[in-house]
């Protein structure tokens, strides 16, 4: 499968909406087999989503993201693992090891539904984290 990581230099880009560079990684049996850097150029949500789809991307790992862009990616069937922060190589390894839910990779400020792409125990943890944030926000 192919994943895309929204990058800026050696780190994850802080906001996918405002970034154009992605690292496309081909993964087989939980191992990286190929990688390439792509400039998405387009700034419109639908065009970005379409380009990723055309590149064969199934999952996007990124930082903050707007609802509009999530809807666009969702409409072309791309899974979104959002509100992730850290160095690109570390994030990629964490994804391959299924440990992207570690606290060090969690970017604050997620909105409800932004992390729905996380699956299994990771998803549960993310949802718990989101629910906790919501309670804190209501309380504050």
């Amino acid at each position: 499968m192919k994943i895309a990581i929204s990058v800026w230099n050696n780190s994850l880009s802080n906001v996918f909406d405002f970034s154009t560079n992605v690292l496309i990684v081909d993964i087989e049996d939980a191992k990286e087999v190929a990688r390439s850097k792509v400039n998405l150029e387009d700034t419109l949500a639908q065009q970005k989503a379409k380009k990723l789809k055309d590149l064969g991307v199934e999952t996007l790992i990124c930082g903050a993201i707007s609802r509009e862009v999530v809807f666009a990616l969702d409409s072309v069937g791309i899974e979104v693992l959002a509100y992730v922060t850290g160095e690109v190589e570390e994030v990629l390894q964490a994804h391959l090891n299924n440990s992207l839910d570690a606290a060090k990779f969690v970017m604050p400020g997620c909105w409800h539904g932004a992390r729905n792409g996380f699956g299994g125990c990771m998803r549960k943890r993310r949802l718990r984290s989101c629910a906790k944030e919501a309670i804190n926000k209501k309380g504050g």
């Binding site: 922060t85 400020g109 804190n136 504050g140």
Partner: peptide
């Protein structure tokens, strides 16, 4: 800042500002 970004001070303090502000200019 909490009201505008929606992020509580307890979450923000100690983090990189780019991970909190989520602005278009942070990186470029």
């Amino acid at each position: 800042a909490h009201e505008i970004t929606g992020i509580a001070p307890s979450e923000a303090i100690g983090k990189y500002c780019r991970d909190i502000l989520h602005a278009d200019v942070c990186q470029s």
